[in-house]
C-alpha cells in the first residue's frame, strides 16, 4: 500500500508516521507538501500531528485552506481512507470532514501521558482488526483535545456507531478519571458517516514498536491495511 503523509508548515509527527508505515509495517509512505494539489497514486491519506501554522487562530483552522486539502476532500468523497492523528484530527474537523471540534483541555494544560483506549466498534477500516475486548495503551500529547459537539451531533455519532475510541481506565471503564482532557462521552476518536474518514487524539504511531514500550497502536494501522487489501482483492475479483 502507498500512504500519503501530509506535511503542513508546523507538522511535527509527519516523520513518525512515515517511519512506522515504512520501517515497521513495510509499506511505502511519502510526505506530501501542503502546497501540492494531487494525491494521485496514493491508497490512503494520513494527516499527522503537530502544530500546523503554529496553531495560530485555532488548531487546524489555517491548514484546512492549504491547497492539498481540496485533494483530500475529493479523495474522501471518492471513498479513500483518511486518518487524522492529533492535529490531523483537528484539521479534519475544521475542514468539515469530521463532525464536532476539539477545544482546550479542561485542565487548561498540555497533557502528554499514556492512556487506555477502548475500541467501541470494529465496523470501520480503522478498527476492523482490533479485538473487541482489547484495551489499547497509547500516548496522548495535546493541549486541545477535548472533543466537543452539540447534542444532536452526539446523538447521531452514537446512533451511527461513529465513535471509534473512548478513554477508559485500565479496567475498561469510561470514567471521568480516565478522561485526560474532558472530552464529551470520553471520545478519543471518531469516524464520518461513510466510515472512511477518521480522527483520533492519541498517537498510535508512538505505540507501534516494542522498543518504545508498547505496540498496541499498530493495530490501528494493521486494521487499515487489512481493510485496504480486502478492498483491492474485491476489486480484482
Amino acid at each position: 500500500m502507498n500512504f500519503a503523509v501530509l506535511q503542513f508548515p508546523g507538522s511535527n509527527c509527519d516523520q513518525d508516521l512515515v517511519h512506522v508505515m515504512k520501517n515497521v509495517l513495510g509499506h511505502s509512505a511519502s510526505l506530501v507538501w501542503h502546497k501540492d494539489n494531487s494525491l494521485a497514486g496514493f491508497d490512503a491519506v494520513l494527516v499527522p500531528g503537530g502544530f500546523s501554522y503554529g496553531d495560530y487562530l485555532r488548531t487546524g483552522a489555517i491548514a484546512r485552506f492549504s491547497p492539498i486539502m481540496q485533494a483530500v476532500q475529493q479523495f474522501a468523497t471518492n471513498g479513500g481512507p483518511v486518518l487524522g492523528v492529533c492535529n490531523g484530527f483537528q484539521i479534519l474537523c475544521e475542514a468539515g470532514l469530521l463532525p464536532g471540534a476539539l477545544i482546550r483541555n479542561r485542565s487548561l494544560q498540555f497533557r502528554c501521558e499514556n492512556v487506555f483506549l477502548k475500541t467501541a466498534t470494529n465496523d470501520s477500516p480503522f478498527t476492523s482488526k482490533i479485538p473487541s475486548d482489547k484495551l489499547m495503551r497509547v500516548p496522548i500529547a495535546h493541549g486541545e483535545g477535548c472533543y466537543f459537539a452539540d447534542e444532536p451531533t452526539l446523538e447521531k455519532l452514537k446512533a451511527n456507531k461513529q465513535i471509534l475510541w473512548q478513554y477508559v481506565t485500565d479496567k475498561g471503564e469510561a470514567t471521568e478519571q480516565s478522561n485526560p482532557n474532558g472530552s464529551l462521552l470520553n471520545i478519543a476518536g471518531i469516524c464520518n458517516e461513510a466510515r472512511n474518514v477518521a480522527g483520533l487524539m492519541p498517537h498510535p504511531e508512538r505505540a507501534s514498536e516494542s522498543v518504545l514500550g508498547c505496540v498496541d497502536g499498530k493495530l490501528v494501522f494493521e486494521s487499515l491495511i487489512a481493510w485496504m487489501e480486502g478492498k483491492s482483492v474485491a476489486k480484482a475479483a
Binding site: 500531528g49 502528554c112 500529547a141 518504545l212
Partner: peptide
C-alpha cells in the same frame, strides 16, 4: 513533565521518571 511532549519523534525509550532518559 506531563506538560511537555516527551514522546514526539518516536525515539523516547526511557521517559522522564527514571535516573536518566534514553533516546533512540
Amino acid at each position: 513533565y506531563r506538560q511537555y511532549d516527551h514522546m514526539v519523534r518516536d525515539g523516547s525509550v526511557v521517559l522522564p521518571g527514571s535516573d536518566a532518559a534514553v533516546i533512540r
